[in-house]
């Protein structure tokens, strides 16, 4: 099957064809907003912030500019026949507006061995820790794979390749190229969801934001990617196959060996904590918190000490990393280890 590129909206176009449609559609949508904003008949259905309208009206090409789109405007857009995909991607944080980020897919930060670095990923206000942990794991194991996923287009958009399966239990599927416009939900001055990576003189690093948005586009919105499987997410980024090891039925020595083998062979590996039980005792909850473990959360191992039986876990929050005794708190509070092999 030929690779397909998902463009704005639901249509597909062959990957090799022109990248043209995305920007004209965005321009058309914003021109539509301008028309609505200037139309008295719109009445109370549309109450855009005057500064936003002025910003839109004063913007000739609408693409090289930073554009704020309020929820009201997005609601109006949902009634048009040719809305931009962003209108479907809003949710989760109600006051977020889509803002354009003029940056680079990759920026090599100070001390980074590669432009793609595990520290580039910091989760935001979306429950997609599994995806963030997967991005960290792949960035650690194969930064070149991340680089190969993203290509900037001449019109300023990005093509992001995801290895999607036909279904959760399916082995069918293949690489799909998703065209992404670099506008992202923003609250205040920061991205609402996964954060920018390193900062270049002329703009921020965007790769994690682009992958997150590409996946949200495929799944129908940001809310749709809250919660997921870290192994499947890492497989989506590499094209490999995920194997899940259940912590409860695996000995601590074996868990250490699995993580060690994965890190040594550069196989992306993630670890997932169990959710808190409905009637869990306060003592157990406090014990977990004393180890700084977050329930129902994904982490990416930085290292494992097989002889000491400890694992160092990177928290996708960007802070809050932990080192745990595998036979102790890890065994008590973690549910699975996911490894993606080629």
């Amino acid at each position: 099957m030929a690779d397909m590129r998902y463009d704005r909206g639901d249509e597909r176009v062959p990957a090799g064809e022109s990248t043209g449609p995305a920007v004209p559609k965005a321009v058309a949508a914003i021109t539509h907003i301008q028309r609505l904003a200037g139309n008295a008949a719109v009445g109370r259905a549309l109450r855009p912030d005057p500064s936003q309208v002025a910003q839109l009206q004063g913007d000739d090409n609408n693409f090289g500019q930073r554009v704020a789109i309020s929820p009201d405007l997005l609601e109006m857009l949902s009634e048009t026949s040719a809305p931009p995909a962003d209108r479907d991607l809003v949710p989760a944080v109600s006051d977020a507006t889509f803002e354009q980020y003029d940056g680079h897919a990759f920026v090599q930060g100070h001390g980074d061995r590669d432009a793609v670095d595990p520290n580039d990923v910091r989760q935001g206000q979306l429950g997609d820790c599994y995806l963030c942990a997967a991005m960290i794991a792949v960035a650690r194991a194969h930064p070149e794979r991340i680089r190969s996923l993203i290509a900037r287009q001449s019109n300023g958009t990005y093509n992001v390749t995801l290895h999607l399966k036909a279904g959760v239990w399916s082995r069918e599927g293949g690489a799909q190229v998703v065209n992404v416009v670099p506008t992202f939900p923003t609250t205040g001055d920061a991205p609402a969801y996964v954060q920018q990576g390193d900062q270049a003189a002329d703009g921020p690093e965007l790769w994690a934001m682009l992958i997150e948005k590409a996946y949200a586009q495929v799944k129908g919105g940001y809310v749709s990617i809250a919660d997921g499987n870290s192994g499947e997410a890492a497989a989506m980024l590499t094209g490999g196959r995920s194997t899940e090891y259940r912590v409860a039925s695996t000995t601590p020595d074996r868990i250490a060996a699995i993580i060690d083998e994965a890190l040594t062979n550069r196989w992306p590996v993630t670890c997932n904590s169990a959710g808190s039980a409905k009637n869990e005792s306060a003592e157990k909850s406090e014990d977990r918190e004393d180890y700084h473990i977050v329930a129902h959360h994904s982490y990416a191992p930085r290292s494992v000490d097989v002889s000491a039986g400890t694992v160092e876990l990177q928290n996708p929050w960007g802070r809050g990393d932990i080192t745990l005794l595998i036979s102790g708190p890890f065994k008590r509070y973690f549910s699975s280890v996911d490894v993606v092999r080629p």
């Binding site: 910091r122 989760q123 206000q125 429950g127 205040g188 129902h296 929050w317």
Partner: peptide, 21 residues
């Protein structure tokens, strides 16, 4: 949302596990 992070201007605020206490 629990387990996620809000970015204020200079501070990132992460919410850990909620329980009665």
């Amino acid at each position: 949302t629990e387990t996620t992070v809000w970015t204020a201007s200079r501070t990132r605020v992460a919410v850990g596990t909620i329980f009665e206490r």
